[in-house]
């Protein structure tokens, strides 16, 4: 759960930063809420289309990882449901939330990579994107090694 929260907070921070940088505050007062929302989405798409391709790829990967984690949480709830309704509980299932957390972690790693390779982020401008990618790959290797160890 900690990882999930951290990840969501990171995503919000990144998207928020993008919006702040790219949007031109074009909404007008007095318009209907619907047209406001349309304008907002349109400006969001426009702003996001200006995002570099490599960052879009990372975003795609983050979405994939989060989706996978969400599916697993649902499976976990399904198992809890079965347990509460009288089916037997396999104790090894209790390890799976942990595994879900591991999977979320790959999303967190991807977000970290995104922060470092984003050219508009001045904080890491002295760190080359190749170094950031290498870190990302190394951390993922360790992560998947651990996950594999828990299988079966």
């Amino acid at each position: 759960m900690f990882y999930l929260v951290a990840e969501i907070r990171a995503l919000i921070a990144i998207i928020g930063a993008d919006l702040c940088c790219k949007s031109d505050h074009s909404g007008r007062m007095g318009k209907s809420t619907t047209s406001d929302a349309q304008a907002l989405i349109r400006s969001l798409c426009a702003a996001y289309s200006a995002t570099p391709t490599n960052l879009k790829i990372i975003d795609l990967y983050v979405i994939f990882a989060v989706f996978t984690a969400v599916v697993q949480v649902h499976v976990l709830f399904f198992n809890v449901y079965r347990y509460l309704h009288g089916n037997s509980w396999d104790i090894s299932l209790q390890l799976f939330p942990l595994r879900s957390a591991f999977l979320c972690r790959t999303a967190v790693l991807a977000v970290c990579l995104r922060i470092q390779v984003n050219k508009e982020n001045k904080e890491f401008k002295d760190r080359p994107p190749e170094r950031a990618f290498a870190d990302f790959v190394l951390c993922n290797m360790v992560l998947h090694l651990v996950i594999t160890n828990f299988l079966g």
Partner: peptide, 19 residues
């Protein structure tokens, strides 16, 4: 009951590779 978890583990690995 754990097949979704196995699947998620491997799909994440494949996803990482493709990424």
């Amino acid at each position: 009951a754990a097949y979704p978890y196995y699947g998620a583990s491997f799909s994440t690995m494949i996803g990482f590779f493709i990424f």
